[in-house]
Design a protein around this nucleic acid. Structure first.
Lengths: 116, 116
DNA sequence: ACCTATTTGTCCGTATGTATG
DNA sequence: CCATACATACGGACAAATAGG
């Protein structure tokens, strides 16, 4: 799993890490059951603090993509492939909407039409 | 405004037309106030029936992107640039969700987290 | 202001394919 | 396998809006 940060985007580092992991799961670079790199290792490789990586991992856990247990590290959960792909587009939509100043309720209305 | 159909996708022609027009608006190839090609002309150029184009135009009108009046044709509405961009991502999300079998309510929950 | 020809979307119906029960 | 419903695409006729003289 190759991971790259881009300082020019202005996006928080922990979000960039989470996005990169989501993409890796969605693209099948890491499969359910596999372990992600340990927080210390990844932090060292990226040149950031361990807690920054852990914040990203925590978000991914809250989204249901990975399991996080002391001693075992971060393990990709079954079903995460679909979730990661969808989550990626959800985030893209949220960013697009806020960029254009469109409200959440309006987005939901548009989505409801489209998903009928 | 150049428009191209792809028969291999299996997507309904009227949807392909609507998508292409949305992208053209979003990319600034046509600006608010400008006229879209008449339904007969565009249909002739694409080799489809006039009503197929009109169905696409009707959908775009329902989305608030264009105005449709007989005698005058289809005119791009102000504010359509933002709307077109957002709508494009909304459709992408709807397709991704259905492909992965994820329900509308679940998508809304994910979106709410993200847009807070 | 008037008339008329043209442009253009709207409304009627029809055929075909594709799920659905 | 059949019937039903639905969506897609096409065709012809119609009426509103527009443009030119």
């Amino acid at each position: 799993m190759l991971l790259q940060l881009d300082p020019s985007t202005g996006l928080p580092v922990y979000r960039q890490i989470a996005s990169a992991v989501r993409r890796a799961i969605s693209d099948g670079e890491v499969s359910p059951g596999e372990r992600l790199p340990g927080a210390r290792d990844l932090a060292g490789a990226l040149g950031v603090n361990m807690h920054t990586v852990l914040r990203a991992y925590g978000d991914l856990r809250d989204e249901g993509l990975i399991e996080l247990r002391r001693g075992r590290g971060a393990v990709v959960r079954p079903g995460s492939v679909s979730l990661a792909g969808v989550r990626h587009v959800v985030i893209e939509l949220a960013e697009t909407a806020s960029r254009h100043g469109i409200e959440f309720t309006e987005i939901v209305a548009m989505l409801e039409e489209e998903m009928t």
